[in-house]
Design a protein around this nucleic acid. Sequence first.
DNA 1: GGAATTATATAGCGATCAATAAGAAATTAG
DNA 2: CTAATTTCTTATTGATCGCTATATAATTCC
Lengths: 195, 195
Amino acid sequence: MAMGRPRAFDMDEALERALQVFWRKGYEGASLTDLTEAMGINPPSLYAAFGNKEGLFHKAVERYVAERGKFWAEAMNEPTARAAVERLMRHSADFLTDKCNPGGCLLVQGALSCSDQATPVKRALANRRATGEARLRDRFERAKSDGDLPAEVDPTDLARYVMTMMEGMAIQAASGTTREALQRVVDVTLRSFPG
Amino acid sequence: MAMGRPRAFDMDEALERALQVFWRKGYEGASLTDLTEAMGINPPSLYAAFGNKEGLFHKAVERYVAERGKFWAEAMNEPTARAAVERLMRHSADFLTDKCNPGGCLLVQGALSCSDQATPVKRALANRRATGEARLRDRFERAKSDGDLPAEVDPTDLARYVMTMMEGMAIQAASGTTREALQRVVDVTLRSFPG
DNA sequence: GGAATTATATAGCGATCAATAAGAAATTAG
DNA sequence: CTAATTTCTTATTGATCGCTATATAATTCC
């Protein structure tokens, strides 16, 4: 069978550039013109490769979680709950303020509030955040049976507390708070963390 | 001089309704159609009364801070830093999840990420949040001279920590976290707060 | 080479965006 | 009453939104 004209752009690189636009402007704040210009392609190529704007966004989020979220797994593998939280928050403080990236977190600022038609996107991001919270809760449950968290600790509440802190750090980073200042916020948090 | 035709709508009530639309959908997510329908007026009336969409938004934010932010002053007047933070966070947890309101905080989700042309709005909200952080810092400085905070505490860092927590709570509330769950996050925070 | 297939570039679609022009309606001043 | 002033309703404006129809270019199969 005939194979047709070969694609003239690198899909991975185009997706990475779209990801950065969404990261900076959010789902609705990023226009197709913004996206196609950053990706170096024309609209028909975008639609042929990624479906539509929402499909492109979901693929960008998937890439974001897969590539930028690796440190979550590393953190959860630390031997104790405290070490896991410390590694998670230290890396987050660096990551959220990394000058190579737009400030903040795509999962937080990608579609926090939006028009009615974008509510599915908003919900998808909220689900991604909830997944992170669930991973923390699971890790804390394991820590309790390991004995490195006191028996009176509620893993659900502690996970929500840590997640709330990290989401707040994303807001701070998006507002221009520096890496050093964010690390001092982590200091304050860890000073009181059990273990 | 001639007084002209009297205005047929209540400006305060119209502004309140616009505020609620912005709160739910954000600055860019709220269309003029959304706004005029909620306010019960036609576009020319909106523009005559409030200038333009951005002017309306700023007036809505001003109203939001003045009316919904009263509890900040009450909290800062508590006798100790710890009591101030407890009152601030307890009220915030209730406020952010109040079923009479859209979930979350207008100052956080009003324009967290946006198109280039809305960046002035984004910056204005970041400045409002920074003002809250500064009030906390000032209160903690006073607490240090009052002796109800240890001398080794850095008021700037502690204020940033509390503000980060509150911003995270706004994200949680916007994602559907309940009042009770948010109060348990406050429990965890207060368990470690000095005083 | 010729047919089939796929990606490209150009141009433009209908819908919606924020904002307004035009004129009728409602008030006060004299 | 008339004149002046202001707000109202109606109907658009030009720009931009996400998206696509069309035709051309580039490749493979036969």
